[in-house]
Design a binder for these strands. Structure first.
Lengths: 209, 209
DNA sequence: TGACTTTTGTACTGTTTCGCACGAAATAAG
DNA sequence: CTTATTTCGTGCGAAACAGTACAAAAGTCA
C-alpha cells in the first residue's frame, strides 16, 4: 500500500535511479526516532538523517507513521537475528542468558544511553496508536515465549531444579530485559547493569556452582 | 525561579485571585502528558486540559519543560504515598508485594492502558534531556533500595530462605514493576498481568505454602 | 535520437505551535 | 472611592511543520 510490493533488487528499473538505499534510509530514520522519540522527530529531521528530501520520503515510505512502523519491523528483525545467533552452538541456559543480555546491553548503550528502540519510543506512542500498541504487545509475547522455551529446554536437559517453573521464570527473564531497556536509557552505569544481569541469571538458573 | 517560592495557601493575596488550583492544574497536565507523551503534547493541549490559557501557564509553571518536570515530581510523591500506605499495618513481604503491584496496576490501567507515568513518558525524553534522565535514574534507584529494604526486613523476620539475596531479589522486584509498566501500556489484559505478578511473588518469596 | 518513466529538489500553501505584549478584569489596601 | 497589585484572556508575529505541485534531472527502451 505504501510502496511497490515486489521489489526486484537487481532488475534494471525504468526511470531515474534512486539516490538512496531503502534499507540504509530505514536504519538512519530509526536512529533519529531512537534518539528523539516518535513525536519528537520531524520530517525534516528524517530527511536530513537519510539524505532524502521530503517528497522522496513520502514516495518511498508514506507518511511519518508509516515510516515509523517500518522501522519497528526492521528493528525487530535485527533483534531476533541477534537472539538466534546467540543460540548457534547450543549453549547452556546460563551461557545463553549471559550472551543474550550482553548483546542487548551492547545495543542499548551504542551512541550514549539510548535503551531499547521499541520500549524507548513505541511505549510512548502505544497509548495513542493502536497499531503501535499491538506491535508492542506482540513483541513482548514473542519474547516471553522465546525465553520460556529456552528455559523449558534447559529444564529438560537437567540444568534447572526439578520444581523450576519455566513460565514464571520466562516472565522474569523478559522482565529483566525490560528493566535493562529502561535503566540503560536512564543512563545507569554499565557496572550496575551488569550486576543486575548477574543477579537475574542466578535467580533464574539457580545459584552458581 | 519559576514561581514564588513561599506559597502561603491561606494568606489573602493582593491582586486578582487565581482561577485555578495549581495542584489540580498539575494533575490535569500530567494526564495529558501521560496519554500523548511529552513531545506529543502542545501547550494548547495543556491549556485546554487545565482550563488555563497559555500566558497563565507560563506565569504559573514556566515553559513546557518546567511544567513537565513539576508533574514528574508530583507523580513521584503520589506514588510514594501509595507505597507507604501499603506498609501501614506491617504486612508480610508476600502480602505487601501483592498490594504493591495491585496498586501499581490500578494506577496503570486507569482510563485505558496508560502504564506508568515516568516510564511511559520520561523514558522517551530521557535520551535528550539530562534532568529527565537524572530524574529517572534517581527514581529507579530509590525503588530498588526501597524494595530491597522490604526484602531484607522479611528475611530478618524469617519469611525467606536463609540464602535469599535481598539485593538480587530487589532488582527483580523492581524489574517486575518495570515490566508491568510497559506491558500495561501495551494493552496486555489484566489477567495476564496478574499471572505475572503471581509468578514474580512466588520467585521472590519462595513457592507458596 | 526521441519518447517514456521514475526520482529529485525547489517552492508553495495552509496549519500548528511557541512565546509574549497589552489591555481588561478582579481583588486588597489606603 | 482611588490606587496598587495580580491574574486573565485576546491576539499578534515568528518559526516550525506537514503535505503537495511542478519542473528539471537521469535513467531505460525502441
Amino acid at each position: 500500500m505504501v510502496q511497490k510490493e515486489a521489489e526486484k533488487p537487481e532488475a534494471k528499473r525504468r526511470g531515474r535511479p534512486r539516490a538512496y538505499d531503502p534499507q540504509v534510509a530505514l536504519a538512519r530514520a530509526a536512529e533519529v526516532f531512537w534518539k528523539a522519540g516518535y513525536a519528537g522527530t520531524s520530517l525534516d529531521d528524517l530527511a536530513a538523517a537519510t539524505g532524502m528530501n521530503r517528497p522522496s520520503l513520502y514516495a518511498a515510505f508514506g507518511d511519518k507513521r508509516d515510516l515509523y512502523l517500518r522501522t519497528l519491523d526492521y528493528y525487530r528483525e535485527e533483534s531476533r537475528a541477534l537472539a538466534r545467533h546467540a543460540l548457534a552452538d547450543n549453549p547452556t541456559l546460563r551461557v545463553f542468558l549471559k550472551r543474550f543480555y550482553d548483546k542487548a546491553l551492547a545495543l542499548y548503550l551504542t551512541d550514549g544511553p539510548r535503551g531499547c528502540y521499541s520500549i524507548g519510543t513505541a511505549a510512548t506512542v502505544a497509548a495513542v496508536d493502536d497499531r503501535v500498541r499491538a506491535f508492542l504487545a506482540d513483541s513482548m509475547r514473542t519474547t516471553d515465549s522465546f525465553l520460556t522455551h529456552q528455559i523449558e529446554k534447559a529444564k529438560k536437559r537437567g540444568e534447572l531444579s526439578p520444581d523450576a517453573e519455566p513460565a514464571a521464570l520466562g516472565y522474569l527473564a523478559t522482565a529483566t530485559l525490560h528493566t535493562l531497556a529502561i535503566r540503560s536509557r536512564a543512563g545507569l552505569p554499565r557496572k550496575e547493569l551488569n550486576a543486575l544481569v548477574e543477579a537475574a541469571i542466578n535467580v533464574i538458573c539457580g545459584a552458581p556452582r
